[in-house]
Design a protein around this nucleic acid. Structure first.
Lengths: 193, 193
DNA sequence: AGCCTATTAGAACGGCACGTGCCGTTGGCG
DNA sequence: CGCCAACGGCACGTGCCGTTCTAATAGGCT
């Protein structure tokens, strides 16, 4: 029954990650402490410090490890519809519990801790950007977008306002709001007649 | 020589704010401590706690107090040009030392601390948004923008990508990048022939 | 001028979490 | 089977927290 060969070290690592997520959801990232995680997980502090250099790094790893594969793009042939679907999924995941507050804290931590910022970029932001640009590129090749349009810029204009609303104004992001951003962007992206 | 009547309390408050800014620029917000500020300012901790409820609140007040009036819009009659000028100023101020790192930490803190988030909104974000929307409204009245365009949305699309770049990808924001966002936005905002 | 009250600087407090040692134990590998 | 790295647990010294105490001080009031 050992489909994946498990070592004791792997088990510990996984248990610590799970405990970190649990505790963070209960008391929030601000009150999270390595001491608390160690106690709850039934683990020595050394065992944590041996794996992660800081509370921020542990938290990032705990949040991102189970979550990577969830935000993939559909490809029905209709860019507009596919972007809509994808971004609706994204704001649902990132904008509400349980993961919304965790991501929010993660980005907050990245503002103080360059190592966390770099890893967040590497493991979350960049791959996600790449997926969006790839989907847009395909659409452009099929003539659904103006050939001269800058797709990296399009990605920023799609993503930026959502993050701004989520992180700065801290209002909820509705599907309707996403649709309006998409519409505004497409007004400038559609191929000219 | 007391053009503005100064009480001792006002002097203390001002001195603490100044010391907070100095220390934050030297060692960063993460390593900033109220204890450190008190020592440097030659002030009892009590004197600080009587004025601000937390490190975050003190820091916010120190950063925003001297800074409020700096980001006003010109009005030359040409929206595009005025927005350009204004946003160039904004990214210069918010994107580089000495104020860039301070603002970055401030937004980071707002992700953990709801009170800081609320006051940041009240004292910085909302007023700034209002100025942008006001400038856009005037432009729309003069027929420079499509009458049906949602100006709050326009403001988000202008601001969002800049914050996204500054805070999430943490790459420098160039004037050229600002220009490209503006151009893309205006492609959808111009009045239809 | 002289008091009076609120505010101040500064020292000290208990509490918490940090990061690092040191034990005695455990479990996987050769 | 025996070794050795990793382990849980405990304790340590440090730093900062937020609060409390005391003595000095400043400014307003009569």
């Amino acid at each position: 029954m050992t489909d994946t060969p498990r070592t004791r070290a792997d088990d510990r690592t996984e248990a610590i990650r799970r405990t970190t997520l649990e505790l963070a959801q209960e008391i929030g990232y601000a009150k999270l402490s390595i001491e608390g995680v160690a106690a709850r997980a039934g683990v020595g502090k050394h065992t944590i410090y041996r794996r992660w250099p800081s509370k921020g790094a542990l938290f990032l790893d705990a949040v991102l490890s189970p979550q990577q594969p969830d935000l993939d793009y559909p490809d029905t042939g209709d860019v507009m519809a596919d972007l809509r679907t994808q971004i609706h999924h994204a704001v649902d995941l990132l904008g509400r519990p349980p993961f919304g507050p965790l991501f929010q804290s993660l980005i907050g931590e990245a503002q103080h801790n360059p190592a966390v910022a770099a890893e967040l970029n590497e493991r979350f932001t960049k791959p996600q950007e790449a997926k969006t640009v790839a989907r847009l590129t395909k659409a452009r090749e099929q003539g659904q977008l103006a050939p001269e349009f800058d797709l990296d810029l399009a990605m920023s204009i799609l993503t930026g306002p959502l993050f701004f609303t989520l992180m700065v104004t801290q209002e909820p992001v509705t599907h309707e709001y996403v649709d309006r951003v998409l519409e505004a962007l497409f007004a400038g992206m559609r191929p000219r007649p």
